[in-house]
Amino acid sequence: MRGPGDEVPASPESSEDPARARSGRIIFLNGTSSSGKSSIAQALLQILDGDPCFHLPVDAFHAMRARREVSCEAMPQLLRRTWKGFHRAVAGMAAAGNNVVMDHVLSEEWRLLDCLGLFKAKEVVLVGVHCSLEELERRERERGDRPPGLAARQFHHVHAHGLYDIECDTTTTSAMDCARQISNFLPHQPVPTAFEQLTAALRPDLPTAD
């Protein structure tokens, strides 16, 4: 019996040319704080068929940071580095052939532009997670672990790019029902994907994918 730290014998796949390795799918959930992204992600992990998915939430990356005081002047750059590292971790997992469910808050344009330059656009399913502002504020008060008004500040920015493969609304729809909508959509994702269209429109500097 092997332990967690024991080496696993090399398989034929381990010698595969990295340039030809299968890229994993990224299910990209975008919505404000408290919109239900993480709950949808957890539901997706329960119902998706095929290879196991990994849920990579951006909150987990913020939580990894050492618990020490950071000045107001230094915080914006620290947060930017955290977001950029999160993007690259997701890209790396997918490049290694893993399917990923990520949740994000595209409240600043540079975040989307950075992701467009990192992810294989045809393998991204961009999901808009909507919720009414009234319900977001109610959830925020109930949770008590978010700065008051955070969702309201993000509300008019998160979906500004305006294009998705599929959208869901958690105001009255459960996370599991939203996950089922997404799962049922996956075999029918159109071409070009939303990410391919956004790349063409917003990142013309990038080389065209084969």
Rank of each mutant, 00 (worst) to 15 (best):
V70L: 12
V101Q: 00
V105T: 09
M102N: 08
V124Q: 03
G92Y: 02
G85H: 06
M64V: 11
G92D: 09
A89E: 08
G97F: 00
M75T: 08
W83Q: 12
V105N: 02
N98W: 08
D59Y: 00
L78H: 13
S107T: 07
L78E: 09
L56K: 03
I40T: 01
F119T: 00
G50D: 01
L112Y: 02
I47S: 02
A94E: 01
L118N: 02
W110K: 09
Q46W: 01
Q77Y: 02
E73V: 12
P76I: 13
C115M: 08
V124C: 02
M64K: 12
M64R: 05
S71A: 12
L78D: 05
C115V: 03
A60K: 11
H62D: 09
L56C: 13
L78Y: 11
C53T: 10
V58G: 13
I40D: 03
H55V: 05
V100R: 03
G97Q: 07
D59H: 02
L48C: 08
T82G: 10
R81I: 06
V124A: 04
R88H: 11
A91H: 03
D59S: 12
F119C: 01
W110F: 14
D51A: 14
S71V: 04
G92V: 02
C53P: 04
P52S: 07
